[in-house]
Every structure is written in structure tokens, then in C-alpha cells.
């Protein structure tokens, strides 16, 4: 099994490297009328952390397909989702437990 051992070795050795790069923290609030702000603007090629406070009385799930996160927020709870570095463009996030509650992230070249 030399192939498997090699792959495992690569995987584990690189897992030990410190991957905690500095993150840009963005604040987001979920209100009964939707996300606030509805649009976030971030520079390209930066690791991002989005902090969400759920100010509604219902459980919400902050999800994005193109930014690859999915996290449950209980009422009055706060969560953080992590993504990036992102290339320039427009990305969308939404509350998975509600219809048509969406927001966008605009990624701009620095």
C-alpha cells in the first residue's frame, strides 16, 4: 500500500501546519424582515469570518452554496461562519429555513 501511505502522509503532515491566517470579520444581523446589511463588500483573496446574530424568534440556518457554509443559529444566538479566500465576483447567502431571505457578498479586487 505505498500509494495510500504516501497520501496519508501528505494529508497528515500538512494538517499539522498552522492554517490560522488572519481573517476579516464581518457583522451581520438577521431580523424578521431579512438580513441587515443585505450586502457585504470584501476585498478578494482574504479569509473571511461572518458573524451573524439571529434577532428573530425562529431557528435560522445561514447557508451558502458558493461560499460553502451551512450553520444553524438559534433565536437570539450568534454564530460565525468561515470562508475564503474568495475570487472577485458576486456570492449569495440565505436563510435556509425561510423562503426568499437572501443576501449577497460582493468581492472586489483590491
Amino acid at each position: 500500500m505505498p500509494l495510500r501511505n504516501l497520501l496519508l502522509a501528505i494529508l497528515f503532515s500538512s494538517a499539522c501546519l498552522p492554517a490560522y491566517a488572519e481573517r476579516l470579520v464581518l457583522q451581520l444581523t438577521l431580523t424578521p424582515t431579512g438580513f441587515s446589511p443585505k450586502q457585504l463588500t470584501v476585498p478578494a483573496n482574504k479569509r473571511i469570518q461572518i458573524k451573524l446574530v439571529n434577532k428573530t424568534q425562529q431557528v435560522a440556518e445561514l447557508e451558502s452554496y458558493d461560499m460553502k457554509f451551512e450553520k444553524i443559529a438559534v433565536p437570539n444566538g450568534d454564530i460565525s461562519v468561515f470562508t475564503g479566500p474568495l475570487k472577485a465576483g458576486k456570492y449569495t447567502f440565505f436563510n435556509d429555513y425561510s423562503d426568499h431571505v437572501t443576501g449577497t457578498v460582493i468581492v472586489k479586487k483590491p
Partner: peptide, 15 residues
């Protein structure tokens, strides 16, 4: 993908 997003694994290129 999930582990790399939270920084527990390297990404080896984000996209």
C-alpha cells in the same frame, strides 16, 4: 471542504 474553511486543514487553492 468544511474543515479547510474553518482552517483545520489547508485548502491547497481556494478555487
Amino acid at each position: 471542504g468544511i474543515l479547510a474553511n474553518i482552517g483545520f486543514l489547508p485548502q491547497w487553492g481556494s478555487q
